[in-house]
Simulated assay, not measured.
Amino acid sequence: MPRILSSASPNRNSSQVNRAKANQLRIIGGQWRSRRLPIADVAGLRPTPDRVRETLFNWLQSVIGGARCLDLFAGSGALGFEALSREAAKVVFVEKDTRAFKQLQANVVTLEASGAQLIHADAFSYLEREMASFDVVFLDPPFRLALPEKALDKLLERQLIAQESLIYLEHELEYQLEFARWGLAVHRQTKAGQVMSFLLKKV
């Protein structure tokens, strides 16, 4: 007689799968397409969703190859790893949380990502000592701390943005910025739920 599984079993299995996926990020395109990487269990860590990353890298497809990139509030590293997968020459990952940083280190080893440079530091202390400009800067900071404004101030003050550089910025829907203050204009933008995403360039 065939064994009849309880109705709870599929739900438990489904729940386990969903929890596992929630603790992973998936690389969308490039050499590591469909690779899944673990994410550190850190409060507030929220990788840029797959759909938004796909849109972003469609915007960047003509410039990302060979680019020098900065993933300033790296977190899961989703944006930086996606850039390296699509043949960015170098990505500097800056992350101050120790658990998130250790997971970034492990994922760099897993991918054998030779173009990755990992910096365990506060974003602003790092910017104070950086000297070279970047082709693409990814800004996905923790929400509700006014960090985008502070980051843009420091990037411009330190002259880390060249005339042709692009800045990708995510912030909460209710947060408002006048990009003209920094001599920046919106090149592309999109909205996903309560998050706004912008691709910015110098006027």
Rank of each mutant, 00 (worst) to 15 (best):
V42W: 01
P49A: 08
D50H: 08
A151L: 04
D41R: 12
A22N: 14
A162P: 01
V203M: 10
R129C: 07
E112A: 13
D41I: 14
A20W: 15
I27E: 03
S34W: 07
A67I: 03
A116R: 00
R36Q: 15
A132K: 15
C69K: 01
A40Q: 02
P142Q: 09
A89P: 03
G44F: 08
A43W: 06
R35A: 08
V17Y: 13
Q105K: 13
T110H: 11
Q105E: 15
L127H: 04
A185R: 13
N107K: 00
L152C: 12
A113R: 01
K96M: 13
A67W: 07
D50F: 02
T110N: 09
E54W: 06
T98G: 05
L118Y: 00
A43Y: 09
R46W: 02
F179I: 08
I161K: 00
M1E: 15
L56C: 07
A132H: 14
H171W: 08
F134H: 05
A113N: 04
Y126L: 06
W182Q: 08
L200W: 00
A180S: 14
S197Q: 09
Q163W: 06
N58E: 06
V186L: 10
E149R: 06
L118Q: 02
H187F: 08
L45I: 13
E87S: 12
S133H: 08
F73W: 04
F198H: 03
H120S: 10
W32G: 08
V17H: 14
W32C: 07
S85K: 00
